[in-house]
């Protein structure tokens, strides 16, 4: 328990370092760091209604990030959350199109299922290549992101094109209101319920099942787990499938909920922010929930800054990037410390 608390505190320290770095950047760029940061805090949490907005962004991020955590724990660096998110949303959009006219209680579950299947499929092939022939999953999942991005461009300007679209951004036809699971505000009981269900199920899976324990052991030392008789491919493929399915689910939620359509290049940073969240939370499910709320706040502040405070929304990118920088440094530093410790013993 104490170890867990110190771990969270250590992550927090790095976030604080990141904020100090940002302040420096803001000052150098000619803004008052304190003004920027107070406005960010306002936009994220303090202003009335901000919390709801932050949750709107946090929930899909949480779902994707939990999935990322599952594969990272098992020792697979699936950085293809963005692609899996897109493919999930595309599959859901197709299903919604095909089932158009059917009752909502059929269409919505079918879309959710299709989205998860699509995301899982987009993680399956890199997982298969990795386990079958050792192809580096960092490369394949990254490539998968580009492929999915282009697929989205094709789908939104081809088969699912909205003919009445303005032409500025290709997108699919708007989803019928009956099939939406939230209004454009993006927050609804359904979405909260899905997120909570995912959170509970994944917490149970990771911390309280044979799979969760063996997968995280295998992530730290696959050789030892193999000598105990585990089939690594089973643990690995399951982890890939789960992480892809959750990213696909998040894509489906964005489609059925706040967006109501898919558009080429929509939410381009979703998957990467989710990876960042998973890293900051050190892949713990509860930690991911808290961290996702923080990053959801930043996402909502990014919309607030230029409108209400006349500040560039790029400030949020700077904050995100600094945190990424320090989190990466953290794992490297920790590695180093651990390795030195290992030698002397």
């Amino acid at each position: 328990m104490i170890a867990r608390v110190t771990h969270i505190l250590r992550s927090l320290i790095f976030v604080i370092f990141a904020l100090i770095l940002c302040s420096l950047v803001f000052q150098i760029a000619g803004y008052s760091a304190s003004t920027v940061l107070t406005n960010v805090a306002d936009g994220a949490f303090l202003r009335p209604g901000a919390l709801a907005q932050s949750l709107r962004w946090a929930l899909p991020l949480f779902i994707t990030a939990v999935g990322v955590g599952v594969s990272f724990r098992a020792g697979y660096f699936n950085i293809g959350a963005q692609g899996q998110f897109y493919v999930g949303s595309i599959c859901a959009a197709f299903v919604a199109e095909w089932l158009s006219g059917a009752p909502a209680f059929v269409v919505i579950p079918a879309c959710l299922f299709a989205g998860m299947a699509g995301g899982a499929f987009w993680a399956l092939w890199p997982g298969y290549l990795r386990i079958r022939s050792g192809t580096d999953e960092v490369i394949t999942t990254l490539m998968g992101n580009f492929m999915a991005g282009l697929l989205l461009v094709y789908v939104t300007s081809g088969p699912l094109k909205d003919p009445s679209g303005s032409g500025q951004q290709a997108s699919s036809r708007p989803l019928e209101a009956a099939y939406r699971i939230s209004t454009s505000s993006g927050l609804s009981v359904t979405i909260v319920a899905i997120a909570v269900a995912v959170g509970l199920a994944m917490w149970l899976l990771v911390n309280r099942t044979t799979f969760g324990m063996l997968a995280s052991l295998a992530g730290r030392n696959p050789v030892m787990v193999r000598w105990q008789g585990a089939l690594l491919w089973k643990l690995g493929i399951t982890s890939f499938l789960l992480s892809g399915a959750l990213a696909g689910l998040a894509g489906t939620i964005e489609f059925l909920g706040p967006n109501g359509r898919i558009a080429s290049g929509f939410l381009p940073a979703h998957g990467f922010t989710a990876i960042l969240i998973a890293l900051v939370a050190n892949f713990s499910v509860a930690g991911t929930a808290i961290t996702a709320l923080f990053f959801g706040g930043l996402a909502s502040a990014a919309l607030y800054l230029p409108v209400m405070a006349g500040l560039p929304s790029a400030a949020i990118d700077v904050i995100n990037a600094s945190i990424a920088l320090f989190i990466t440094a953290r794992s490297k530093l920790l590695d180093k410390v651990l390795r030195i410790g290992g030698h002397s013993s």
């Binding site: 899976l205 044979t210 995280s216 052991l217 030392n221 105990q228």
Partner: peptide, 26 residues
């Protein structure tokens, strides 16, 4: 034999876990 970066109980329990189905609650 051991995963040095894992806890003693995880190391110790690995053999017993492998006798169970993957989705068994522990």
């Amino acid at each position: 034999g051991l995963s040095l970066s894992s806890s003693l109980w995880e190391n110790w329990t690995a053999r017993a876990l492998l006798e169970k189905p993957l989705l068994r609650l522990v």
